[in-house]
């Protein structure tokens, strides 16, 4: 990956849209205490179910209204971005590391390591990912750490499968033979030479995994297994809003919208980068 690849990427509308969404998410996540108009946990039962700004009877200070306990929706959405992005970055990084290392080892070493990793992936693929993460969170115990751990345990195979397949192709390339010929050890060849050529693929996978992680966190909160109820996570807001869907449809719609925009942005970023970074697709 050289400078021109990055410049080409910045000219791609999908990449730009994805980066804009990511920047917005990061801004909300990092600056939540400064941007959020209210304390997301502060309850005000006298101001419950305040409507959002496009309705009559807006309560000042609550631009997007309040929920059943009178908590400010906008502030909760902003703090929700913090949870979503934390889960996305940490779990995508950890799943990426584990999956890439195992995929590299399996693909490059072949033989027994490959047989073990491939069997493991087969077994993993026989479980419905969502059910597996739900069961895992129940086993590990609720909390943000449990959610992240569950996503990592379920999703490392996404990286592993693709990295292994890529390595099988890369292994036969001339540059690998050259690296071996000048006396580089197997780990050096795999971790330096091959990994460098996998970087575009890994960046794309990482971006897509972030979107998946945000969705899974929302799913776990929706089911009631993620972090403590009351904490401002988008999935939790959806589950609470679902109860008042006929009185105040926006309570569920707003967090659903946040997740959809995030997921679409990250997908666009991944697709765009695939087009601009991957030499195979470009050809």
């Amino acid at each position: 990956m050289d400078e021109t690849a990055w410049r080409r990427s910045l000219g791609n509308p999908r990449v730009l849209f994805g980066l804009a969404v990511l920047a917005l998410l990061a801004l909300a996540a990092l600056g939540a205490p400064l941007i959020a108009p209210q304390n997301p946990l502060h309850q005000d039962l006298l101001a419950s179910f305040a409507p959002p700004f496009w309705h009559a009877g807006v309560v000042p200070g609550h631009l997007l209204g309040t929920d059943d306990l009178g908590r400010d929706t906008l502030s909760r959405l902003i703090y929700g971005a913090r949870i979503a992005l934390t889960v996305a970055v940490i779990s995508a990084t950890a799943a990426g590391l584990i999956g890439t290392l195992l995929g590299l080892a399996a693909g490059y070493a072949g033989g027994l390591p490959d047989a073990i990793v491939s069997r493991l992936v087969d077994v993993w693929m026989a479980f419905p990912p969502v059910l597996l993460s739900i069961v895992l969170v129940a086993v590990i115990g609720a909390g943000l750490e449990a959610v992240i751990l569950a996503i990592v345990i379920v999703d490392w195979t996404r990286f592993c499968r693709i990295v292994r397949a890529e390595v099988l192709v890369q292994r036969e390339q001339d540059y690998v033979a050259a690296a071996v010929a000048i006396g580089l050890g197997p780990w050096r060849v795999a971790l330096q030479e091959i990994l460098r050529n996998l970087l575009p693929t890994l960046i794309v996978l990482f971006t897509l995994e972030m979107g998946i992680a945000i969705t899974v966190e929302a799913i776990l909160s929706f089911v009631g297994l993620s972090i403590a109820s009351g904490a401002p996570s988008w999935g939790g807001m959806i589950a609470e809003g679902r109860l008042y869907i006929h009185q105040a449809w926006w309570l569920m719609t707003l967090p659903v919208g946040c997740i959809i925009v995030s997921v679409l942005g990250l997908n666009a970023l991944g697709d765009g980068l695939r087009q601009t970074l991957d030499p195979l697709v470009r050809r």
Binding site: I212, T215, I219, R242, W249, M252, V256, I260, L264
Partner: peptide, 22 residues
């Protein structure tokens, strides 16, 4: 493009909102 990017969970919630409530 939309169908592949948005997972079934979110489609379900969207459909509840669109054709169940609005």
């Amino acid at each position: 493009g939309l169908g592949m990017a948005i997972p079934d969970f979110l489609w379900g919630l969207l459909l509840v909102l669109l054709l169940g409530v609005l």
